[in-house]
Simulated scan of single mutants.
Amino acid sequence: MMKIILMTIGTISLGLGAVGIVLPILPTTPFILLSLACYMRSSDKLYHFVLSNKYLGPYVKDYVSGQGIPLKAKKRAIFLIWLTIGFSTVFVIDKILIRGMLLIIAGGVTAYIWTRKSAERNINEH
């Protein structure tokens, strides 16, 4: 059952990451990394598919190989996280507790992304 749940979460996350390639409001790299984490525990075939895919692989290969996340991808992901969370907390969410939780989550994700090792090259150089 856990394998099916992980594959489902991975596939949804992969879909969001793929949409993020063409829709700048969605951060691509974090979604693809989440899908890889799910696939690593549920499907070797899907895990290798993502890494070898010519459109998806470049976003995560440096991180998976231990080289880190390209600085451009880090900055873009953090910017988009704060853009979407900021928009939600100002215009969509009216409950203070939920606003606070979203801001704490955004801060935690930002800290996590920023403290990961930075790759020497940008994703456009692959």
Rank of each mutant, 00 (worst) to 15 (best):
M2V: 04
K3I: 08
G15N: 10
G15A: 11
G17R: 13
A18W: 11
A18Q: 10
I21S: 13
V22C: 09
V22H: 15
P24L: 14
P24N: 15
T29V: 12
P30Y: 05
P30D: 08
I32Y: 03
S35G: 01
L36T: 04
L36P: 01
A37G: 00
A37D: 00
S43K: 14
D44I: 11
K45G: 00
K45C: 02
Y47M: 04
H48T: 03
L51P: 09
S52Y: 09
K54F: 11
Y55D: 12
G68I: 07
G68W: 10
P70R: 04
A73G: 01
K75I: 11
R76C: 01
R76N: 07
R76H: 07
A77D: 12
F79C: 02
I81G: 00
W82M: 05
L83D: 03
G86R: 10
S88R: 02
S88T: 01
V92E: 10
V92Y: 06
I93D: 04
L97H: 00
I98G: 05
G100F: 02
M101L: 14
L103Q: 05
A106S: 06
G107V: 01
A111M: 07
A111T: 09
Y112R: 13
I113W: 10
W114D: 04
S118F: 10
A119E: 09
E120C: 00
R121L: 06
E125D: 05
E125I: 02
H126N: 11
